[in-house]
Write a protein that binds this DNA or RNA. Structure first.
Lengths: 152, 152
DNA sequence: TCAAAATACTTGTCTTGACAAATATCTTCC
DNA sequence: GGAAGATATTTGTCAAGACAAGTATTTTGA
């Protein structure tokens, strides 16, 4: 995921909230992915780097709960990072079913740049939104999330 | 996309607005995809069906502006619908570079069920949100969207 | 007129997301 | 102790999103 195609409305009636949400998230993501191109990462990969950097090491299971994807997705994200030489997988000491993901030296070296980009993105996106507005947003989103529920 | 994996927070500090947005959109999408399984469609495919049904026929270019994806994505979505026998592609009359996508009889037959599912989804998601709250949400989202801007 | 630029679509490639099924390793509890 | 079930990870498959590059056709403009 990188640059986003232009999407200049066609059947210009009012856009539904659902579609608007979708569009916002997609553009956020694409924009961030594009910014991250300069360090050769994607948003998800950067998240893993960042989390591992803070925690020292994490298992795929732990990463799964942090990344909003499933365990299979994490496996392959880690695969890519491993191929890039940014993380290593080691068997867990106490539970041999498990694995610990840990940054390599060059992975660690990338973290400050990633953090800087992430911080810039966050500042940019929510600039102009007061703390109260952000809180309002958060609350509305949580209510929607509760409404999603299980499939019918 | 179908069922969503459980994601029970791990490093339970406050979740950022960006992540929350991502999570909400993903669960909305996955839930809708799952509901649509019973008619053998995905959310994007359903959108094409629905749009073509209302417009009579649409070109990929028009669909691209409606679907929040790029032209390549539309090509392949239409491919899948064509394989399922739900739409046809015909050369455009006046511009032979172009193509018109039109529902087949069985595509048309599916529309009411899709519309019903879409309507149910919309009602469910935003139930409990007042019109004012939805408007507030919409406004905040537009502001974020404006903040995304072009890549640095 | 007719070559160059623009436009509409398609195809190729990589990354991700979701789910099912397979494998390896614990844990339980008879 | 050892079978049955639970858990952690991986692998396979399909749909999608983004972008680049290719093809066919139309439009521009020298």
């Amino acid at each position: 995921m990188r640059r986003l195609a232009e999407a200049p409305e066609f059947g210009a009636e009012e856009e539904g909230l659902g579609r608007l949400l979708l569009r916002v998230v997609r553009e956020m993501r694409t924009r961030f992915d594009r910014d991250l191109e300069r360090v050769g990462l994607t948003a998800q990969q950067a998240e893993i780097l960042f989390r591992c950097s803070r925690a020292g090491e994490l298992t795929p299971k732990q990463l799964t709960s942090l990344l909003i994807t499933d365990n299979a997705g994490v496996t392959r994200l880690v695969d890519r990072l491993e191929r890039k030489g940014l993380v290593t997988r080691r068997a867990s000491a106490n539970d041999r079913r498990s694995v610990t993901v840990r940054l390599t030296r060059s992975g660690t070296a990338l973290v400050p740049r990633v953090a800087r980009l992430a911080h810039a993105q966050k500042r940019r996106l929510f600039s102009g939104l007061s703390a109260a507005e952000q809180e309002q947003m958060r609350s509305l989103l949580h209510r929607i999330l509760d409404n999603v529920g299980p499939a019918a």
